[in-house]
Write a protein that binds this DNA or RNA. Structure first.
Lengths: 236, 236
DNA sequence: TCAATTACTACACGGCGTTCAGTAACAGCA
DNA sequence: TGCTGTTACTGAACGCCGTGTAGTAATTGA
């Protein structure tokens, strides 16, 4: 039973985020200014401090929202491919990630780059949760591929002690049978998807390369080789 | 024969860059402010406009300098390994890249991230040259590995028309015998080195992973497999 | 020695995040 | 209904910022 006050408050808080998001897509992450938001809302900048203690708090809420949306897209892309097609799932998630990043470069930058001058990410919070969610998708992909991938891995000797205890506990809860080396591999998969996309979003591939998406597709295919889940691998 | 004036001018210009660099390493890229630099030099902010037309121009000079230093480190790392050890060279360059990035995260961010709010990279200039230099190192590595790597590549059909004409011309001048597919592979190598390092620098690996360097090393080794230059490959 | 160029200051403008005292509208309670 | 405490907001201020512009002092070359 939200009171009238609470409802108005929640709406205002939501409107602030929405305007911030729009300002960002229009003028890049640096266009998120409390004064500009307040101007659009017909308020004073100081009034916003009733909703977010500081600008970084607002940015954080944005990051959490955006990261959560990304995780949702990745999950949807994965679930659109049948479970018995691990290669297809990797390709789908990978493409979904790049599609999202290329279509919303500012949001990518906000999450994966320096969000704003002097910004420092807080420890816990919704943003960390969303990051974990997105990461869990990749870990799941690796988990499905693990029977094949583990055979081709040369560097073993990974131990749960190589990870943060809390992090390890969460992962082991979600994937009870997964060895630590698989988690390490999932991180590498993350890095591999991140690399070309980050270069592209920050303008280091274009215009030298006309079709960065093609490069990325080749990289994804090569990634499935590393995971041992190409059709040829699995027929073996 | 630099006149006294020219000498002082060059020195001042250099001092500005040095202070900007120091401010950045102390307080992140956003700490580069003309007023802070002027304060340290005992001048007014306006005076700096005699040396750089705008703050972005100064940032650009910084980027060029830093990028050039990075390219130098990569070249040195490569040349420290004998020419007949392509795997060693890839590992050396890769490690040099990460070592540099981890030890100078702000500089990495300045080059590969959003340098500053609203900053737009200019087209030509020294920065682009340095980026090309660093990229050329990778292309050279791929060129050396190409006899082995070409056999394992599934996606061919690359054409020089897939690249910017000017870019293609420069590459073909430096590596006359290299096919376009190799250039595409070099870009992928770049992305692969970039991914994990970017995630680490922006704080997405720590503290979940205690030793990101180990992940990266595994990734580099896997990369040499893609390039077909592991000792086992070359003995074949 | 004198005129021209150069390097710089002082000041102003509009932008920013943030704080704070004050005000007006609202909520619940008598 | 009226009263009271809470809430939402304003307006002004502080100290930052990049950037222009007019004026001044020093240095230069003839």
């Amino acid at each position: 039973m939200p009171s009238r006050r609470e409802r108005l408050r929640a709406e205002a808080s939501q409107e602030i985020k929405a305007i911030a998001l729009r300002l960002m897509t229009e003028g890049g992450p640096s266009a998120i200014s409390l004064r500009a938001i307040a101007r659009e809302m017909g308020m004073t900048a100081g009034a916003l401090y009733g909703y977010y203690a500081t600008r970084d708090d607002l940015v954080n809420a944005l990051i959490a929202e955006i990261y959560s949306a990304l995780a949702g897209k990745e999950e949807a892309a994965r679930d659109a491919v049948p479970e018995d097609d691990p290669e297809g799932r990797v390709l789908a998630v990978g493409e979904a990630f790049r599609d999202w990043a290329v279509s919303r470069p500012e949001e990518f930058q906000l999450i994966y780059g320096d969000p704003l001058p002097g910004y420092q990410a807080p420890e816990g919070g919704a943003a960390a949760d969303a990051e974990h969610r997105a990461c869990a998708v990749l870990t799941g992909l690796v988990a499905d591929a693990w029977p094949h991938a583990s055979k081709r891995l040369s560097d073993d000797g990974y131990d749960w002690a190589d990870f943060d205890p809390g992090f390890a506990a969460v992962i082991r809860g979600e994937f009870p049978d997964l060895p630590p080396a698989a988690v390490a591999l999932a991180m590498r998969v993350w890095g591999r998807m991140h690399g070309l996309v980050a270069l592209e979003v920050y303008g280091h591939l274009r215009p030298q390369v006309l079709d960065p998406g093609r490069l990325y597709r080749a990289e994804l295919l090569d990634l499935t080789k590393t995971l041992g889940i190409t059709p040829a691998d699995r027929a073996r």
